[in-house]
Design a protein around this nucleic acid. Sequence first.
DNA 1: CCATTGGCTTGATAAATGTCAAGCGCCCAA
DNA 2: TTGGGCGCTTGACATTTATCAAGCCAATGG
Lengths: 236, 236
Amino acid sequence: MHIGLSESDYPEIRNVALFSEVADEQFRRLLRGAYVQNFPPMIELVTEGDQSDFLHIIVSGSVELYSSWNNRETSIATIRPISTFILAATVKDAQYLMSARTLEKSRIILIPSQDVRAVFDEDYHFARAIVTELARCYRSSVKSHKNLKLRTSLERLANYLLRQQTYHNGRSDFDLDLEKKRLASLLGMTPENLSRAFKGLQAYGVLVNGNRISITNSDDLIGFAKPDPLIDDFNT
Amino acid sequence: MHIGLSESDYPEIRNVALFSEVADEQFRRLLRGAYVQNFPPMIELVTEGDQSDFLHIIVSGSVELYSSWNNRETSIATIRPISTFILAATVKDAQYLMSARTLEKSRIILIPSQDVRAVFDEDYHFARAIVTELARCYRSSVKSHKNLKLRTSLERLANYLLRQQTYHNGRSDFDLDLEKKRLASLLGMTPENLSRAFKGLQAYGVLVNGNRISITNSDDLIGFAKPDPLIDDFNT
DNA sequence: CCATTGGCTTGATAAATGTCAAGCGCCCAA
DNA sequence: TTGGGCGCTTGACATTTATCAAGCCAATGG
């Protein structure tokens, strides 16, 4: 199951922002102890509460970060290539705060956490990249917090759709890349409520047909959703 | 209003975890451009959307981080000495995502963001400390996210009270260190609802008298609140 | 092919939370 | 001293959201 990385994988990993500036020697050291694995869908990669052994990098597929308490479960984020996840636990050498599972067949690189910390200590560019990535994750968590506390579920859905539309280059039609029940959990509501919320957005020109979304009147939807770069932009 | 730092302030600042390991030369450089100011209560120190000019360190008093959207406002955290805030915007050279205001008369040190970034580039220990602090902030934001999505308002209040009790060394009586309306906002509810939530916790041995809280039966309250280190511990 | 499963939707209902209005009590400044 | 403002509480009510039960439909596997 565990397969060492081959040199042919290296260029791809170099493309991950975290590693693009690392000195060659340190880069090789990072990958020397690394594994790459292909996972089927719905495999639990990480369990909250466990000690952080590996930094994970998703190369293809998709991964859901989620968390449980008292028999309830909530989706916290979906991760798509190419990206790392659970970096904070790795740098702090602490317990995972979230669990992670594959949603589809996914290819994941695992780098031993201790190697990440060691290279952090030796390579300035890597340290800089880690700080940038951590700051990005932190800020994105704060945005998510604002989204949850300042908006109703209908507003969260409306803004989610607008973000998806942007992601699809502004097309008026696009497919949801997530099961609706997971989207509901991500947005902090029940699947039943999500169904009703989609109905509620018909009044603002949103048509739903299975996974297909059509936004017939962007201005109308924007008028309702009031998107805000300090909540909805992933890059600020 | 702006007052340069004097050398007598240095030892105090050294105690901030972020600076404890910085080389002396870099430490002096950081503080050379810094200011210290005393602010009255309810002064807006930082406005969301503004560019990050200074890293803030609170030396005494208390500061509320909050955010607004569409005429709604929510409290996100309260910061107490000695601690920094809004570090992520500083290291990313980005816009503030939250506003900050003093709650009481507070003493704040302001270090130009560019100096922070410059010293980060030169001093390894400082870089390490920034990463640790960022990871801590990120993880605390994730905990807060879990708290909001996995728990009802009554459960959030119950766990808040248990955390406060721990902070007060487990005493059965202690004072809230926050106005109730701010606590309500922090916990994601209205002041009216907080009043009723306190009533609802009477059944688990919580007595409220003004700002005074008495927890007459910790086990009972713990049984209801089900505190979880992965949500409620600040140090993991 | 059929039966089963799981995701999704819908309606009815319940629970949680918010809103509005009123009143109490405390603090502070005129 | 007193009047107003503000924080807090309470009650009545509205809205939002969740829960439960049933049914539809598409995908899947025997």
